[in-house]
Simulated assay, not measured.
Amino acid sequence: MEISQKKEFNEALLSWYHQEKRDLPWRRTSNPYYIWVSEVMLQQTRVDTVIPYYERFITSFPTMESLAEAEEERVLKHWEGLGYYSRVRNLQAGVKEVVENYDGKIPQSRVEILNLRGIGPYTAGAVLSIAYGVPEHAVDGNVMRVFSRLFLIEADIAIPKSKKVFEQRVMEIIDETDPSSFNQAIMELGATICTPNPRCLLCPVREFCSAFEKGKQEKLPIKTKKLKKKVMTIHSFAISEPGGKWLLRKRQANGLLGDFWEFPQIEYVPTMDSIDALKNDTGLLIEQGEAYAQFKHIFSHVTWNVEGFHAVLVDQSPIPEGYRFFTEEELGQIPQSKPMSKLLEQLKK
């Protein structure tokens, strides 16, 4: 596509978007805080999954002040199941900065908004364009896929510096009169039509697509493969006391699943019995019982093969710092990771 075709392209794109766009709750508002929440939730998460989380989150934290003042465990409980929990911690931290330093009003310039915790170039552009109508790029994986085909861009999208190429092209062609609809239309096109397996015959801007013209749409974008993920075997121990309470530990704040509660667990290594490894690591003395659960959980950078075992404390076993017993009722009130939720589900069977 030539830059000279900008007007015709935007007319075709926006006409299609206004007629065919999905009715999503964050599209019914121009509240910059709500748009910020939705964009953070949508990072690496499907739209259908996000909708109920978004609606529940906004109901519980309708203002930035309410989120800024909320207890972290309550916030994490609302995020439970979405994964990538650093997102919501950064969101809350960024909202606190807005409340404390900007009188509760999200900045309207890219330079200022990028200074907020948890806001990167994409989220900055999305909030500025959608909420404030500022012509700013909001380039994510969907947008890079669409633009790689429209302009026959063969830069490797797995390389961070390639993003600048796409940001520049977006700024060259963005509709300055309605940047909100433009950015959302490109996102919608990438999500519904210009997918990894493109549906070119339904595309409203097919006549502007250089890749389609040359029959290269299936080969773009170019993306090198990631390195193989690490695989770990995790032995988890469900330890209860006679009163029916369960022993859990709180994970360290910094790191995977930070601040989430879970059964005592250890990474299994063939050279050491897991009971001995747990004792060395925590001081807990337990007797292992029967296995009750086995499943795989995939994170972005590592895969856990989880094996759950019943276990009992040996008399006089110390309870390490950061461990405590929870009743069944209390378990439902604390934030839990997906692996922990699966283990609890298996225990009830």
Results as ranks from 00 to 15, higher is better:
residue 296 K to C: 05
residue 108 Q to W: 03
residue 294 Q to L: 13
residue 154 E to W: 08
residue 274 S to Q: 01
residue 52 P to I: 06
residue 224 T to S: 11
residue 340 M to Q: 10
residue 269 V to A: 05
residue 320 P to G: 10
residue 242 P to A: 12
residue 13 L to I: 07
residue 242 P to I: 13
residue 338 K to R: 05
residue 130 I to G: 02
residue 90 N to I: 03
residue 103 D to K: 07
residue 189 L to K: 09
residue 71 E to W: 04
residue 287 E to G: 15
residue 209 C to M: 05
residue 197 N to D: 10
residue 22 R to P: 03
residue 345 E to V: 01
residue 159 I to E: 13
residue 198 P to Q: 10
residue 252 Q to M: 09
residue 148 S to W: 00
residue 222 I to K: 02
residue 267 E to Y: 15
residue 227 L to Q: 13
residue 258 G to M: 13
residue 226 K to E: 12
residue 117 R to E: 03
residue 129 S to D: 05
residue 228 K to Y: 02
residue 233 T to P: 11
residue 83 G to Q: 10
residue 19 Q to P: 00
residue 101 N to F: 04
residue 349 K to D: 10
residue 207 E to P: 12
residue 182 F to Y: 14
residue 186 I to T: 08
residue 116 L to V: 06
residue 263 F to N: 09
residue 235 H to K: 11
residue 343 L to I: 11
residue 297 H to L: 14
residue 312 V to L: 14
residue 303 T to M: 02
residue 306 V to L: 12
residue 118 G to Q: 00
residue 83 G to D: 12
residue 240 S to I: 00
residue 95 V to T: 14
residue 278 L to W: 10
residue 149 R to M: 14
residue 315 D to S: 11
residue 158 A to T: 15
residue 9 F to V: 04
residue 131 A to S: 07
residue 189 L to S: 06
residue 185 A to R: 04
residue 1 M to W: 08
residue 318 P to L: 15
residue 266 I to L: 05
residue 143 V to E: 11
residue 170 V to W: 00
residue 47 V to P: 06
residue 186 I to Y: 03
residue 244 G to R: 05
residue 210 S to C: 02
residue 61 F to V: 04
residue 218 E to T: 15
residue 308 G to D: 13
residue 156 D to W: 07
residue 35 I to D: 02
residue 189 L to G: 04
residue 26 W to S: 09
residue 257 L to D: 08
residue 15 S to M: 00
residue 99 V to D: 06
residue 295 F to K: 02
residue 300 S to Q: 03
residue 218 E to L: 12
residue 8 E to Q: 15
residue 124 A to Y: 05
residue 35 I to K: 00
residue 333 Q to E: 15
residue 337 S to M: 09
residue 111 V to S: 04
residue 203 C to W: 07
residue 120 G to V: 03
residue 264 P to L: 14
residue 246 W to F: 11
residue 217 Q to S: 09
residue 327 T to M: 09
residue 65 E to M: 13
residue 267 E to N: 07
residue 332 G to H: 10
residue 68 A to C: 00
residue 104 G to H: 07
residue 249 R to V: 14
residue 66 S to N: 05
residue 181 S to A: 14
residue 125 G to R: 10
residue 198 P to T: 06
residue 206 R to V: 09
residue 36 W to N: 14
residue 198 P to F: 02
residue 220 L to P: 14
residue 141 G to Y: 00
residue 144 M to H: 10
residue 291 A to L: 14
residue 21 K to G: 00
residue 244 G to Y: 01
residue 149 R to Q: 14
residue 25 P to C: 10
residue 133 G to N: 14
residue 220 L to N: 11
residue 346 Q to N: 08
residue 241 E to W: 07
residue 304 W to K: 13
residue 52 P to T: 14
residue 220 L to W: 07
residue 314 V to Y: 06
residue 204 P to I: 03
residue 98 V to L: 00
residue 62 P to E: 10
residue 38 S to E: 13
residue 294 Q to S: 15
residue 247 L to Q: 08
residue 254 N to H: 11
residue 9 F to I: 02
residue 319 I to C: 07
residue 229 K to C: 06
residue 282 T to N: 01
residue 327 T to L: 12
residue 33 Y to K: 13
residue 118 G to S: 03
residue 53 Y to C: 07
residue 252 Q to D: 15
residue 26 W to K: 13
residue 194 C to S: 06
residue 335 P to I: 12
